[in-house]
Structure formats: structure tokens, C-alpha cells
Amino acid sequence: MRNHPEDDTRRTAGLLSIGAFARRTRLSAKALRLYDRQGLLPPAYVDGATGYRYYLPAQVERARTVVLLRRLGMPLADIAAVLRLDGERAAAALDGYWADVEERHAARRTLVGYLRGRLSGRSTAMSGTFEVRTVEVPETAVIGETRHLVSDELPAWIGDSLGRLEEAAEDCGGITGPPFVIYHSDVTEESDGPAEACVPVADLDAARAWVAARGRARGLTARMEPAYRMAYVRITKAQVVYPQILAAFDAVEEWITQEGLTPAGPCREVYFAEWDGAGPEDEVCDVAFPVR
């Protein structure tokens, strides 16, 4: 049975119709319906017979916050998560989102520079973008984890695998050097490597025992990495992002050819800085090739 008109009047007293609310918030009725479905701005009352939506005046401020967050390009799911938090935690979530935006922007800026060099025919190595250096790396005991995966899967796997290996290193005499990732074959959108995450440890026997206790099904290894001469360039956090990191690999390979050297093993990335605490322009990684 339909409510009596007087009941509807009492229920909507002090509320804003969707049209009035749209004017106050500069949101279209279509946007308000979308935000209702997303749980961002549910109306205070919906007429069961007509479907008309009504809003509390207090919801205007929330709606304006949604508008401003959308202008930042924040996805609706992230906006919903921010709005569920209290003041300080919401501000911290916004800071985290914006740090990610700036990191992506820095990565795109680096990619534009790389593509400009490729399209113009200029050499990335000769343009001064990268300085190639060499260093002698001593024989090192390592524990490793090998995985076949494509480029989109690589960043998450590197963080997870190195975290697992660093935790395991506590049972292998401790960590003795920066972690690194070896690319035994190309990792791209179409090629799945494999890649091997490695952590240097002090006790090779303990590392072998650790691997034996867990079996080799997960691609776990413990071995002695031989000494080698490493040619490398140092890159920033923004430059690590695929595909612009390819410019660093190109620069080292070009330098190796110019110097009359020969690659003596697969290319690798050596992570010498704390990733989470680094900004987009902070140096975090060496892109390297063993050479002879």
C-alpha cells in the first residue's frame, strides 16, 4: 500500500531533493546515482513509490570531498576507502595515494626521455643519461628463488621473494650484501624469463640445509655465485619501472661493445637501497652485466 502523502512530506522535511542536492554539490543526477551504487553517497531517503532520492544537508560536505578527490583522478574504490577513515588516517591515505601518483608521473617522465632518444636516433649511452662503471664482485654464497613470470607480475614477485629470502637468511648466517635479481632470459609482456631473486648469506652449508628442508619445488637454490667483474649503471626508483629500465640495460650493453668486452653471464638488478623509503628520484638500483 502506498504511503499517505502526508507521511512522505514528514519523511522528506528538511531533506534536499536530488535536484537541489545536485545544484549544491555541482554533481549531476547521473553521478549521484553512480555514487549511490558505489556506496559513496547513499541518499538519506528514497521514496518507495516514485524512486525519488533525498539527501541530508550535512551530506553536501561529503559530496564536495568526493568531487575534489575525483579531480585528483582517484578511483572510486579508493575514495570509498578514504571516506571510511577518520581525519588523520584519511589524510595519511591521501598522502599515500599522492605519493603513488608522483611516482608514476616520475616514471612516465623518464619513459618520455627514453622514447625521445629512441625516436630521434640518439644513443642513450652517449647522451650522458647514464654513466657506466665497473666493480669487482667477490665470490658470494647466495640463496635464491627462481620463477617464470611476465613483466606485469615482476614488481610484486621481486618484493615478495626478496622478503622471503631475507627472512630465511637469518637461519643462514645473516645477510652479507645487497639482494639482486638475475634475468636468465628476457622478462617482457610476452617472455616469462625465468628470473631469479638472490640474497647473499654468510653460511652456504646452512643455506643448503634450508633449501633441502623445503624441497626444490618452489625453485629454491643455495649456491656459490662466482667472482666476476660487473659493468653497471646506477638508476633511480622512477627509472626502475618497466619498460624505461630497458634504457639502462641498453646503455650497459652498448658500453660493453664499445669497450671490446664480452658479457660473462646474464644481466641483473642489484638493490642497494631501502625501496619503500625511497622517493622517485632517489638512486636505488644498479643495472649490471658480468663482463670479461
Rank of each mutant, 00 (worst) to 15 (best):
D8F: 11
R10F: 11
G14H: 09
I18N: 00
G19V: 08
F21V: 08
A22F: 06
L32V: 08
Y55T: 10
V60S: 06
E61H: 09
E61W: 03
R64E: 14
T65F: 00
R70V: 08
R71K: 13
L72C: 11
A77W: 07
A80Q: 14
A81C: 08
E88G: 12
A92Y: 03
A93D: 07
A93E: 12
Y97V: 02
W98Y: 14
D100M: 10
A106V: 07
R109F: 07
T110Q: 13
T110D: 14
L111M: 13
R116S: 15
M126A: 15
V135I: 12
L149D: 08
V150M: 05
D152L: 10
D152I: 05
D152C: 06
E166C: 10
A168G: 11
A169R: 04
F180P: 04
H184R: 11
T188K: 01
T188H: 07
E196N: 01
V199H: 03
A202S: 09
D203F: 04
D203K: 06
L204C: 02
A206C: 02
A209F: 00
A213W: 03
R216G: 15
L220D: 04
R223P: 02
E225C: 08
R229S: 07
A231S: 05
V233W: 00
R234V: 12
R234C: 12
I235C: 02
I235D: 03
T236I: 07
T236C: 02
K237Q: 10
Y242C: 03
F249Q: 08
V252T: 03
E253W: 10
E254Q: 12
E254A: 14
I256M: 09
Q258F: 09
E259W: 06
L261T: 07
G265R: 01
P266D: 09
C267V: 10
C267K: 01
R268W: 01
R268Q: 12
E269N: 02
V270W: 03
V270L: 10
W275S: 10
D276W: 14
P280W: 04
E281R: 09
E283G: 07
F289V: 00
F289W: 10
P290T: 06
